[in-house]
Design a protein around this nucleic acid. Structure first.
Lengths: 106, 106
DNA sequence: TACGATGTACGACGAAAATCGTACATAAAC
DNA sequence: GTTTATGTACGATTTTCGTCGTACATCGTA
């Protein structure tokens, strides 16, 4: 009964083009926007985007492996949060600039 | 002998995910980095990236159609420049944040 | 243990992207 | 007009991505 574990890249492994790619999809951009407003959220609650479960898993994996988000198992759910400090440390101002508009557009 | 013309999207048509996608490729990121340092440059001079001509044309087209760059024919050459004011107008601080690191990494 | 809830893994499919060679177009110089 | 330099257009191929159904794993609870 190993608690589910997720791969998270080290801060030193974050690359700009990977992060930009992770954010170049409307659905993923909406997710990050939600996380920026509400902090940590359960992945199930993110499904408001009217996207099938497996599709959302796919997008969350891309965000996580790019180092943008962190996934933390909590009971049967998964809590997703932004790796704000880490991204800011490598690319200061990037998230702020990207999310300044509110994430409304896609 | 119509002077070659290139499609450039209007400022109001710029979308965040398109711009981020355009910048999510190492080669294109390097091009933008060059433009940021040296201002306007001939497309031929950008081929220092050791990329075939037709491939570079492809990348420049994506940057241009995303609204990141402007292409201006000058004699037989093409001068490429950043649409800095336009991108800044829609997404303030975005280019600065992306290029703060110098574009060294890919 | 069995059940229901949540989420992942895997696979398949179609759409889009990256690469690059070749042919064509444009512009300047001869 | 011909030649040369520069760059685009098109097509072919390979790779990657986005989507989503289905099967499996995990967790809490009865």
């Amino acid at each position: 009964m190993s608690p589910r574990k997720f791969f998270h890249p080290d801060v030193s492994e974050l690359t700009l083009h990977r992060i930009l790619f992770a954010l170049s999809d409307p659905t993923r951009l909406a997710v990050v926007s939600d996380l920026m407003k509400d902090g940590e959220r359960a992945s199930g609650d993110l499904l408001a985007e009217s996207v099938p479960r497996s599709t959302m898993t796919h997008h969350l994996k891309i965000l996580r492996e790019a180092g943008v988000t962190r996934t933390r198992p909590e009971g049967m759910r998964c809590l997703i949060s932004l790796r704000r400090e880490d991204v800011d440390a490598r690319f200061p101002g990037l998230l702020d600039a990207i999310m300044a508009h509110g994430g409304a557009e896609a």
